[in-house]
Amino acid sequence: MSDHHSPEEHSHHPSYGTYIVIWLALLGLTALTVAVAGISFGNLAVFVALIVATIKSYLVVTIFMHIKIESKVFTYFIFAALFFFVVSLILLFADYRYL
């Protein structure tokens, strides 16, 4: 029923333009990772690659997956999931560092 759309439902979805800008940013960041890997800074290159991949994921999750306009509960859930992943990562490396 178009005359009583619930207001919280998708009233401000991103426009085509926003999506295309984000897509261009994602392509740009991909080019950046490839370029940095080409110059090759060793450990630094891996670090930069992971930072860039995190930024790209952030853009996909917030804009393409609409987390920016979803209820805040979604964001809390994502942080909870990531929190436990990071805990596993830290505990695992705490073990392997002292092999």
């Binding site: 990772t33 890997a37 290159a45 891996v46 690659a49 991949a53 994921s57 996909v60 999750v61 997956m65």
Partner: peptide, 24 residues
């Protein structure tokens, strides 16, 4: 939207697979 969310996740996983396997 549900199919789209799944598809974006596939994209996000590749975003990490690509540098870790191909660019190191």
């Amino acid at each position: 939207e549900a199919a789209g969310l799944y598809w974006h996740l596939v994209d996000v996983i590749w975003i990490f697979l690509f540098p870790l396997f191909y660019l190191i």
